[in-house]
Design a protein around this nucleic acid. Structure first.
Lengths: 212, 212
DNA sequence: CTTTAATCGATAAAAATATAGCGTTTTTGG
DNA sequence: CCAAAAACGCTATATTTTTATCGATTAAAG
């Protein structure tokens, strides 16, 4: 049993966190109600688009001339995005990026709790990063099962990414967030989000070049 | 004077780096020619889409029954994405993530050279991270101008992101790659790529939840 | 040398996404 | 109390992006 009154669009889902962040700002300033027009102006978007997006998550309708009640809309968004029911996750690859993620406590706000990490480097195995223990790879299946963890973060070099992903899946992980520059081949039913920094860079450079 | 025979799509541009990575793998294995069908199968995409994307960048057409010459296609892609003409960049915010980026030499492959970093923390100012000096913020305008740098990376907390962006723009930066969880308000003509990890997470969680 | 199977390239259809127009509701201000 | 302005929500239209179709081409096999 789920929500979907009609199926939410991927593009919409990508914008919701931005709305939420903007609403936090307004709320902090004491703004009581907020209109789609205001949000659109603040985030350089089309007001109609904002309204349509909000229609998916809002429990009470907006009022003409006023807009939505800021705190209510915040609650609806947080609710919809699941920021309240925390999910545990594990991370594999305690290198530079992995280290940074483990050290960042901000994900807790988004309902993500990285419980521990795994690596093959003896130098880091057994240590703790920001209070999160680093185990050796072989213990991954055991711990994932014991704590019923469904989300895995991959921050290993691209050469080992597929191998790590396979291990995660066989251990019972259902969603993978990968920062490795490598396409992962996963069985159906496993959710994947690939953070492709090379692609981001390409996009930026393209815009830059076209200015010359 | 530019390329655009018809204007390249953003979605296409996002896929090109993935093609390139896949081609590297094939080339390493000694595969001489590669078909769009093969690429599509390897990356879980539609063959027609791959062919259309390739049509934008390939200098010589593919041959029926064979496909494209692997090395040629690699060269075309690298060329198109500008991996050869390196661009210098600066980074602001030498915290966890900033540290990770400075420590990662892989961006050189993509034609990105992070020359130095800036921060407000006296503890890191004056130090070097992976051979890249960390200066105090006040020196940013001077150095950006002196070395004619056009790309800036933001890895500061969201509270200071706008301020940093403004400083960058006034110094002459033309493209910003931001990892801060904050919408940036920039003048027209400044390219921006926002890495929204919260949005990524939201997408993943959504898929995860819908499995329950 | 002919047949065969596979691919390309171009065009057309479909799906997803964004924008626009119109009527309705509600506050604001005379 | 009433008119004007602002903003919502709905429906419809444009735009972008993806997928499908079809004939032409060509390397490889017999």
């Amino acid at each position: 049993m789920a929500f979907d009154k009609a199926e939410i669009s991927k593009a919409t889902l990508n914008r919701l966190p931005a709305y939420l962040r903007y609403l936090y700002e307004l709320d902090k300033k004491g703004v009581q109600t907020v209109s789609s027009t205001m949000i659109a102006a603040g985030l350089d978007l089309n007001p109609v688009q904002v309204r349509k997006d909000i229609a998916f998550v809002a429990t009470s309708p907006g009022k003409p001339k006023l807009g939505y009640v800021t705190k209510e809309l915040i609650a609806d968004l947080e609710n919809f995005l699941g920021y309240h029911n925390t999910r545990d996750a594990i991370l594999v690859g305690a290198g530079g990026l992995g280290h940074a993620i483990l050290g960042y406590d901000g994900f807790a706000k988004y309902g993500l709790n990285v419980t521990c990490a795994f690596d093959i480097d003896p130098a880091v195995i057994g240590t703790s990063i920001n209070g999160k223990p680093v185990y050796e790879m072989s213990r991954l299946p055991e711990l994932v099962k014991r704590f019923n963890i469904r989300l895995g973060i991959i921050t290993v070099p691209s050469g080992s990414a597929q191998e790590v992903a396979d291990l995660m899946v066989s251990a019972g992980i259902k969603a993978i967030w990968s920062f490795a520059a490598k396409h992962l081949n996963l069985p159906a039913g496993i959710a994947l989000k690939h953070e492709d920094l090379a692609a981001s860079l390409a996009l930026l450079r393209m815009q830059l070049v076209s200015q010359d």
